[in-house]
Design a protein around this nucleic acid. Structure first.
Lengths: 269, 269
DNA sequence: CGCCCGTTTGAAATAATTCAACACCGGTGG
DNA sequence: CCACCGGTGTTGAATTATTTCAAACGGGCG
């Protein structure tokens, strides 16, 4: 029962173009990458830790997360992914993935052999740079998560996660303030390093303060500016080329210089 | 007062070869990259957040860290770097760095123009892959830090940091068990998301338990296996091609399958 | 209808922070 | 030479955010 038109990698091209400039020829080369389409139900593993890497997955629809298991069995979510996101683009350059990728909702996925990824990168230096740039941005996002998780209160962590998902979804949003939060509260906890119980209380508090409203898996941001303040969120680390949507354009007072305001935690020298 | 021979990028080549295979021609091309040497005292900024990227820094000697300021002014250290490490290799592909790099000790640094980095990557696809691989490993390390910081007790976080530094230094270590920990306890706290007070107590406990010994900035690992257990450390995420030194080769029981032992935190599906 | 998953609520336990003071140590200047 | 000094490490006691455990609730779905 095929429920979509013949799948294409157009969403991947769209995703790459959010941060890289591609020529028509390069876009064509990307669109003609060989791939195997699949439809996976919620909870399927797309990449398993330790797997010998054979292919890269592109999400054509649905959402997924990367995660890793801590020693005590707790699951730490490392990133949330939506349609268009490539998963494990550069995996072919490493011996094994050190984390797993699992679908959250039912997903359409395109599996591209790593061989083809490396080939196209060798033929088109600009595509190689776009792929490299993707990895740089992934690293940047991971570092931002480090700051959020290591330094932040529960409120900040949850707010920061919501802000990130909002900005990353903003390229595809119609109604600008309602985003797709495909996670259960337990999964939000796994992403923010909190207990589901505490996530619950935190989100209740944020609802009570009028910052957000939730309805099933849809989350509406009522006070974008305040939410950014609570999450100490500044979108630079996402390295989007395009400006954000107008209604999300509010800027924050936070900046490196401004942040140095707290004196007793002075920087080195 | 030049205190070393004419500086070369040999340490960079050595660093890259820990994870990538390079031909003689490629090594030669890397060694003939143009660069400006500098000597910077402890605490100098090599890269400042928001800087328009102009050059990549290679540490020829000394140590440095990347860091970011949280909204409340607290400093979060994101990575520790030693001689040979390239800092901001791919920065030329982004509009601005989203974090700063600061020297810890006096450092010799080679500044390579980004233009030259991109050029050599375009001419040698295998070097492009090596650079890309560096970014992938950086992202992998950042993700491991996420797990350690979000999920770990103070003991785990500190032990994990020590283990990582030990393995990363092991390619250059003579005495295998004594490593260079160029950080003050406050800086360890900034790296692990803990208070210097708590770092102090935690390290005392680890010394008391006979896991480590410290002498100024030198740290001796007395019980490598136990330290790895405490830090839930498994070196895979560093993606070294070469096996670790013999005395560090002890393997851990932790693995994805083993970790699933704790039942009530079951994985999705 | 009953079941399961996710959410909500409460109370007790705990890890880590905060604040404050003191000890140590190498360097610097009187 | 000693006195002082700033940075680092150490210690103690009170406070707090978050976890843990446990139980109940609600709503969609077979």
């Amino acid at each position: 029962m095929p429920d979509v038109d013949a799948p294409t990698l157009a969403t991947l091209v769209h995703h790459l173009q959010a941060r890289s400039t591609l020529s028509a020829e390069e876009r064509g080369a990307l669109l003609s990458l060989p791939f195997r389409p699949s439809h996976d139900q919620a909870g399927s593993y797309l990449i398993r830790v330790g797997d010998p890497p054979s292919h890269c997955c592109v999400l054509l629809s649905g959402s997924a997360y990367r995660h890793k298991l801590a020693g005590d069995g707790a699951r730490q979510i490392l990133a949330i992914h939506f349609a268009g996101d490539p998963l494990g683009l550069g995996l072919g350059l490493l011996e094994a993935s050190e984390h797993s990728v699992q679908t959250i909702s039912p997903c359409h996925v395109a599996h591209i052999p790593h061989r083809a990824i490396v080939d196209i990168a060798d033929r088109f230096p600009n595509i190689a740079r776009a792929f490299w740039r993707e990895s740089l941005v992934e690293a940047s996002i991971a570092r931002e998560w480090i700051v959020s998780l290591a330094r932040g209160s529960a409120r900040k962590r949850v707010a920061h996660l919501i802000c990130e998902l909002a900005i990353r979804q903003s390229t595809r949003m119609e109604d600008g303030t309602t985003i797709d939060l495909p996670l259960t509260q337990e999964q939000v906890g796994d992403a923010t390093g909190l207990t589901s119980v505490h996530v619950n209380r935190t989100m209740q508090e944020m609802r009570g303060a009028g910052l957000i409203r939730t309805d099933k898996r849809a989350l509406t941001i009522l006070e974008w500016t305040q939410l950014q303040e609570v999450g100490e969120f500044s979108r630079g680390y996402l390295h989007f080329r395009t400006p954000p949507l107008a209604h999300l354009r509010a800027e924050l007072p936070w900046s490196e210089t401004g942040a140095a305001a707290r004196p007793h935690r002075r920087a080195f020298e």
